[in-house]
Amino acid sequence: MEIILALGIGVLAGSGVWLLLRPRTFQVIIGLTLLSYAVNLFIFAMGRLRTGAPAILEVDRSGDLTHYADPLPQALILTAIVISFATTALFLVVLLVARGLTGTDHVDGAERES
């Protein structure tokens, strides 16, 4: 499972960085989104990988981390998802405005003369 998660994070982050460096605004926004997925998975991995372990205390078991998954990274991811969702939505609006004002979807607002 570790190798799958690691590969997943790697592929997402790699494609995210590549897209982030592309000249079209839409590619940039998709790149940022992929990067934020990779980061969220990364935070998850930082809480150690467990299968079948609940993150909430149960009545009949002792409150000891050998029985439970670490709940804190999961709370962090929730916050991070909300924040990156909001900022991505804002970025999308700016992208559309920039497209309307400059008439091009190049990040510099002008096509490079070739």
């Binding site: 982030l20 605004t25 940039v28 940022l32 990067l35 934020s36 980061v39 990364f42 935070i43 930082m46 809480g47 804190l72 990274p73 962090l76 991070a80 924040i83 990156s84 900022t87 991505t88 804002l90 970025f91 700016v94 992208l95 405005v97 920039a98 004002l101 400059t102 990040v107 510099d108 607002g109």
Partner: peptide, 26 residues
């Protein structure tokens, strides 16, 4: 809008790095 686009993109990428740093420390 043009400068804002760059500003937002740079800072969003910076925030993702921030998250990576925080989670590694944790």
């Amino acid at each position: 809008v043009q400068a804002g686009l760059h500003y937002i993109a740079v800072n969003l990428a910076g925030s993702l790095l921030f998250l990576i740093g925080v989670s590694l420390l944790y």
